[in-house]
Amino acid sequence: MTIEPSESATDGVPVSADPVGADFDAPAQTPASPRKGMFGISGTGDVSGFGGLVRRHPEVVGTPKPYGGYFDEVADALEEAYPGFADAIEKVVVDRGELTLHIKPERIAEVAQTMRDDESLRFELCSSVSGVDYLNSDARRLHVTYQLTSMTYRRRVRLEVAIPVGGTVPSVTSIYPTADWQERETYDMFGVVFTGHPNLTRVLMPDDWEGHPQRKDYPLGGVPVEYKGAEIPPPDQRRVYQ
């Protein structure tokens, strides 16, 4: 809540306006106060003050080199093997012992190919393809993460791409056929369209379902439950600690 300084000829110092229609002994007209009630709150009546807490969403920043462990080797090998490295990589994050490479969506297929084929990378197994919906914390809401495992070197790496709703990502199915159903699931649940996918249809929901259930703005869809006379709202409408 910011306080707007009132317009005035004096340099920005707020002054109150002259009372309008003032009579000699009439009480001054004070402007209507926007505040209601004792504590100035509206809504739930939460007087604890915790209702006004605003949690800052931390910004994910890239880690500077050196990354430590085998991460440097992987990053250097990828840079060597993939010529467009500099403009494909958005940032590199090393967190809790895991390496995440944020890649531009249109380059993901090429990067994945390099990761699989290059001798010093050899990430043969794509363990998992999953989506995350960062509503409200990222303009490019939908992220797709590819978890790659190298059995030769016993390493794990994560590739992450971010697209806005309506964006597309090239499919890695031709490189990692295991991504077939996993990309279908990401499409089904988040609405990420993978171009070049052999069969992009819904896999978990019925074929004619509308909407993408695991997006954050899709409701959980529960029903209120009546128990011993009281009615409990479904889990997404209860008051819970955030």
Binding site: H57, T100, S127, Q147, T149, V240, Y241, Q242
Partner: peptide
């Protein structure tokens, strides 16, 4: 906040859990 991927050897293969937290009491994803 952050994200991790942990994999264990399940009787049927590799069970991986990709967990994302936004710093709160509920899992974010």
């Amino acid at each position: 906040p952050g994200q991790v991927y942990v994999a264990i050897e399940h009787p049927r293969g590799e069970l991986g859990v990709h967990a994302v937290s936004d710093g709160g009491t509920h899992p974010y994803r």
